[in-house]
Design a binder for these strands. Structure first.
Lengths: 148, 148
DNA sequence: ATGCGATATGATGAAGTTATCAATTCATCA
DNA sequence: TGATGAATTGATAACTTCATCATATCGCAT
């Protein structure tokens, strides 16, 4: 890699970092929980009573803990990754820490990803059921690596 | 995690996989090149003459090679990751292979990421110049890990 | 101040990813 | 057919990331 890229376009790096922050199932899980909470705060869905969700602003770690069934330190580590990548912010209120998305755009990103994913999955589905064997590319032996 | 999650929501996994596919500067680079090419094909920007860009559909690997300055096998490996994640498709035409985005939504995803990134960077910028020290959360010593 | 509940950090082995080099395949042309 | 250019695959060492356990910090109540 040319040194010039270092100074002028670490942009790819930064963007890649952003995605790297998202590149783990648990972190996605957490972000979706936080997105939901944002969404709920708009239309005031009453189904969460009070025992279940954050109310004022953000979801307490304890909630995330029980919703994910994770070990505390493990979750904490992932939260720290999310924090480092500026995807969430945590705020201490009393003895608990409440997390929320750092920017509403994070939810957008997840939403767009969801759309793309739907396309992808559907296409794959179709390919399977109609078994139309596209020649594709990769020196084409080794077909159907389907399930990654 | 309940076993039901395995069958019913490997969704987090799948989504995380998607992001993992994006989680590398070179792959972002490649995707942006391919996105550009898509964009250009709409408004027919004439600045690419002919020596530089794919014309019919997709960008040939040779172009990606010279634009990224990578070693062939290295690029190929990343392309293979992108292919595996259904982000691009490659098509052999004669002795060359032409790549393009598998779905236009991939470009959307990048665009949304760009927006988010702009927010993030700007906020960080602001924080730096005004040095308003938020208590933040993480047992708050160790400030300013800035450059990751 | 001491102790407790709630989170966060550190350290470490296991697992996964990236970069590099060698070997292979496919298409074209002599 | 054999040589050549274009791209992919395989193998492997260097590097990261993840999961787990132990330890530390913060805030609140005693």
């Amino acid at each position: 890699m040319p040194a010039s890229a270092q100074i002028h376009q670490p942009l790819y790096e930064v963007k890649a970092d952003l995605f790297r922050g998202l590149a783990h199932p648990l972190r996605i899980r957490v972000l979706e929980i936080l997105s939901e909470q944002v969404a709920r705060s708009y239309d005031g869905d009453p189904t969460d009573g009070d025992a279940m969700g954050g109310e004022v602003g953000g979801v307490p770690v304890s909630d995330l803990l029980q919703q994910t069934g994770l070990e505390a330190s493990h979750l904490s580590q992932h939260l720290s990754v999310l924090r480092r990548n500026n995807l969430v912010v945590g705020e201490r209120r009393g003895s608990q820490v409440f997390y929320r998305l750092a920017y509403p755009q994070v939810a957008d990103l997840l939403a767009v990803a969801r759309v793309l994913l739907r396309e992808i999955l559907q296409t794959n589905q179709d390919r399977l059921t109609s078994s139309e064997s596209l020649p594709a590319v990769g020196n084409s032996h080794r077909r159907d690596r389907t399930a990654r």
